[in-house]
Structures are given as structure tokens and as C-alpha cells.
Amino acid sequence: MTIRVLVVDDQYLIRAGIVGLLEATDGMTVVGEAGDGDEAVAQAAGLRPDVILMDIRMPRMNGIDAARRILADAAEGAGPPPRILMLTTFDLDEYVYRALRAGASGFILKDTGPKRLLAAVAAVAGGDALFAPSVTRRLVEAFTRTSEPGEPVEPGARRPEIAQLTARETEVLRLAGTGRSNAEIAERLFISEATVKTHLNRTMAKLDLNSRAQMVVLAYETGLVAPGGSPRTP
């Protein structure tokens, strides 16, 4: 199966380099290019890519607003939403956390090597979390106290939807929030990876989440995971 990718970046040389790399890779094809968020929203609706490589800082509409619009439009359609992989210059860019809350599946640095970029696209297309647990924790801890500039998040301020989860779903969410993989969660709880995936899918449906990254953010914001990446007991 070929992964269909939309590349969005306002810098032509960077965009062209990514496009060339993807087109030269078996199993991947570039279905479109865009130079800003407005173009990205329009092309995503018409082309229905599997993965969108989205720059964060762009003129007209930035990548965060574009990601939010694209995922909202996709939710109203019949097909699955695209996986959005944010492109950023700094690994602790203040906008990255907001991008995850908007529904992006992860982020990758613009200076990432070709092999890692291709692996990231493949991982995101397959529904996996992009970044390593240590990066996830460092990112979320840096911004978990501020959902928007000047808007503090109260520690332990749980969303009412959390009450919908079963005890097992809550435990799986807590462990996913620490950045553990499905295999690690399965080993910890003495269940199969397939069962872990089922719990994660049900949790995402109940809490109206689009990605594993959003689950990690939610686990921190609701107090299921304490700063430092350790699970809290309810």
C-alpha cells in the first residue's frame, strides 16, 4: 500500500527537498504541495492524503490552525482523517504543544536525517506515536501548565469524560501517558498488545481524541500522569 503525502511548507527549498525524498522512496508518493495553511486546508479536502507534513510557522494561516481545520473537516466526512506530522525548527517550539492539542499525530525537526524522516512518515501513517517517550515527556512537561498563552491548566482538573472509562481503560491511558509503547503496556498489565490497542481505541472514541499524542497530553492535563512521567494513582 502506498502512503499518500501532502507536503506543506512556506520555504520552497525545504519543501522541494522533502518532496524529492518522498518521491524517490518506494511505497510513498506526494499527492500535493502547499505553501501556507489556507492552501493546505483546500488541498487536504480535495486530495485526502494519508499523511500531511505540516510546517508550524507560515504566513496567512499557520500550521496549527490548518491542522485543526483539516481534522474538523475530516471528522464530518466518511473516510479516516489524515495523520498530521508537524515540522518545526526547535524540539521545544512553544507551538508544538498546541499542535498536539489540535490533533497532530506528532512532530519532527526540519534538520532530521532522510532515514528518520521516512521512518516517521511510515510510523504516523500506521497510527503509531512518532516520538520517543523521553521526548514526549519533556515536551508535555514544558507546556502542560499552559494550554494557551496566559491560560493556566489546573493540575488534576479532570475532564468529566474520564469518568466514562473503565478501570482498565484508565490504567492503559495512564501508562500511555508516560510514553510507553503498546508492547510495554501489555507486558506491564499481563495482557496482549491487541487488547491494549482495543482499550486505546475505545478510550480515544469515548474522549473524542484523534491521536495518541492527544492522549499523552490529556493524561498530563487531567493529573493521571505527574510531571516527570510517573503515573499517579487515582
Rank of each mutant, 00 (worst) to 15 (best):
A74E: 06
A102N: 06
A34M: 08
E161G: 04
P149C: 09
G223L: 13
L100G: 00
V140L: 13
E39V: 05
Q11F: 15
T2W: 01
I84S: 01
G17R: 06
R101I: 06
E94F: 02
A67K: 00
G126N: 11
V31I: 13
R159W: 01
N201I: 07
R202M: 10
Q164W: 13
S230E: 13
T222N: 05
P227S: 12
T146Q: 15
R60H: 12
D91P: 10
P234Y: 11
G37A: 08
M28Q: 05
A78P: 01
L209A: 08
L189W: 10
V41N: 02
P149H: 11
A104D: 01
P152H: 07
A44W: 04
P155A: 15
Y95M: 15
D91F: 01
R116D: 14
L118A: 09
F90W: 10
A167G: 05
L218K: 03
K115Y: 00
V216G: 03
R174S: 15
V19T: 11
E187L: 12
L224V: 07
L209M: 09
G77I: 02
A226T: 13
G32L: 14
G228M: 07
T146F: 14
T29Y: 00
E23K: 13
L165G: 10
T112D: 07
G113C: 04
T112K: 00
P155D: 08
E151S: 13
A67N: 03
L173R: 05
V225N: 14
P114W: 12
L130H: 04
Q11I: 08
I108P: 03
L92N: 05
L21N: 11
A226R: 15
G77N: 09
